[in-house]
C-alpha cells in the first residue's frame, strides 16, 4: 500500500532533480541538455549560466562519456544526474568505461602552438565554465561531477 510521508521543509532542501539514463548516442545530448537547462531556468539561474556555462559544460561531459568513456559503443549507456539547487548545480555524468585521468588530459588549448588544434578544448571548457570538476569511481564505470554556484 502506498503511504504518504511528509518531510519537514528546509530552505536548503529546495532542489530539482533530473535523473535519466540514455543510450550511448550523441543525438540525445541536446534533449538532455534542454531538460537540465529548463530546471535551471525555473530555479532562476542567470542568463550567462543558462546560455553558456550549463549547456556547453554538460554537452562536453556527455560527449566525453559517450565517445571516450563508452568508446562510442551503442550497447552502452550514460547516466545523467542533475541536482539543481537554489545555491548550486551539481551535474553528474556516468559512463560504463574505465574513465580517464582528468589531470593527465590537462593541455592548454589557448597557447599559440595549441590554438590551431581541432581537439583538446572539451575538458578545458568544463573547467572554465564550472566551479569544480572531479572524477569519481563508480561501481560500473566512472562519473564526472561538475559543480556550479548560482550567480
Amino acid at each position: 500500500m502506498p503511504r504518504t510521508e511528509r518531510h519537514g521543509s528546509s530552505p536548503d532542501g529546495r532542489v530539482r532533480v533530473v535523473d535519466v539514463e540514455i543510450p550511448n548516442d550523441v543525438r540525445y545530448i541536446e534533449k538532455v541538455v534542454e531538460l537540465v537547462r529548463r530546471e535551471c531556468q525555473v530555479m532562476a539561474y542567470g542568463h550567462r549560466q543558462l546560455m553558456l556555462n550549463v549547456p556547453v559544460a554538460l554537452t562536453e561531459a556527455l560527449s566525453n562519456a559517450i565517445l571516450r568513456g563508452n568508446g562510442d559503443d551503442p550497447a552502452k549507456h550514460v547516466h545523467v544526474h542533475a541536482e539543481v539547487g537554489a545555491e548550486r548545480l551539481v551535474l553528474e555524468v556516468g559512463d560504463e568505461g574505465t574513465g580517464f585521468d582528468l589531470d593527465a588530459s590537462l593541455i592548454d588549448p589557448t597557447t599559440p602552438e595549441n590554438l590551431g588544434r581541432e581537439d583538446g578544448r572539451g575538458l578545458f571548457l568544463m573547467r572554465k565554465l564550472m566551479d569544480r570538476v572531479e572524477r569519481l569511481e563508480a561501481a560500473h564505470g566512472s562519473v564526472v561531477r561538475m559543480t556550479l554556484h548560482r550567480e
Binding site: P55, V56, E60, S63, E118, G122, F124
Partner: peptide
C-alpha cells in the same frame, strides 16, 4: 545560434585551415 561546444569550435578551426 544557441550554443557551440568544443567539437563545434574544432570544426570551425578545421574549416578555417
Amino acid at each position: 545560434t544557441g550554443y557551440i561546444d568544443s567539437s563545434g569550435l574544432g570544426v570551425l578551426v578545421s574549416l578555417s585551415k
